[in-house]
């Protein structure tokens, strides 16, 4: 059970094998991909940066919470860092449980909490040549993104 921050491409076969267990009757996975638009603006690529040490610690806490809430057999997750292109896999979550309800619920819980809590940042590079860190906009001293992200490009 680990939440890994990786600068290397995610190897799905390795992760799937790591989840295999005779007690598991259900496996749910989530893949977050880099998409070509956000909030109506064309996006060309994304850069992810992470405070890896704390992100992995907080990620492990999220997985432990999911195990406690959903009676899982196992849970694993990986979040990429670096410059990713359209279609690239940015984040992967995989869980196993005896039954599907726990697996679906836990997978959703983990990705939602990860997006809200991990010290990971995303810079969007737009088609018009501009780039910006998501959720960090300030205008006139007030937040322009005080609420939760309105539509991050993955997930």
């Amino acid at each position: 059970m680990s939440f890994q921050i990786s600068s290397q491409p995610i190897d799905l076969a390795v992760l799937r094998n790591a989840l295999a267990h005779p007690h598991a009757g259900a496996c749910a996975t989530f893949e977050g991909w880099v998409r070509n638009h956000n909030d109506g603006r064309p996006v060309l690529s994304l850069e992810y940066e992470a405070y890896a040490g704390l992100a992995e610690k907080e990620g492990a806490r999220i997985l432990a919470e999911a195990c406690a809430k959903f009676d899982l057999v196992a849970a694993l997750a990986v979040h990429r860092t670096g410059h990713l292109q359209l279609g690239d896999l940015a984040v992967w979550v995989g869980v196993t449980a005896a039954h599907r309800d726990g697996a679906f619920g836990a997978c959703r819980y983990i990705i939602d909490e990860a997006k809200a809590r991990l010290p990971v940042w995303k810079k969007e590079h737009y088609a018009d040549g501009v780039s910006a860190w998501l959720n960090c906009a300030i205008r006139g001293g007030f937040s322009t993104a005080a609420g939760p992200p309105s539509g991050p490009p993955t997930g």
Partner: peptide
């Protein structure tokens, strides 16, 4: 210390 800007993973 690390000052953590608004996060945006996923």
């Amino acid at each position: 210390l690390v000052f953590i800007p608004p996060v945006a993973g996923g």
